[in-house]
Amino acid sequence: MTQALRLMTYNIRLGIQQGLEAIADVIQTYAPDVVALQEVGHHWSMGPSGDSTGRLSQLTGLHYHSFIPAIVHDIPGRQPARYGQGLLSRWPIAELSIDPLPQHNDEPRRLARASIESPAGPIEVWCTHLSYKESDRPAQGAHLEASLRQAPACGAPGAPLARFVMGDFNEPEPVDWMSGICTLCLDPGAPEATWTFPADAPDRRIDFVLGQGARPLSHRVLDHPRASDHRPVLSLWEV
Rank of each mutant, 00 (worst) to 15 (best):
E107A: 05
P119Q: 07
D136Y: 04
W126S: 03
G155R: 08
S57Q: 09
D168L: 01
H73E: 12
P188W: 08
C127N: 07
R137S: 00
D187R: 07
F164P: 01
E107G: 00
Q58R: 15
P119W: 04
L88T: 08
P119G: 06
P69V: 04
S131H: 03
W126T: 02
L144D: 04
G158D: 09
P172N: 08
I68W: 10
L186A: 14
V72H: 04
A70H: 09
R149E: 15
G86C: 06
H129R: 12
L56C: 03
H73W: 09
P119K: 07
T128L: 14
I68V: 15
C185N: 02
L62Y: 12
V72W: 00
L130W: 02
L144T: 08
D106E: 03
P160I: 10
P119E: 09
S118Q: 03
D187Y: 07
E124Y: 09
P174N: 05
F164A: 09
E117W: 00
P119T: 02
R149V: 03
S57G: 14
A151W: 00
W91H: 09
N170V: 01
E173P: 00
E173L: 10
P172I: 02
Q140S: 02
L111H: 13
P108W: 06
A94Y: 01
L130H: 00
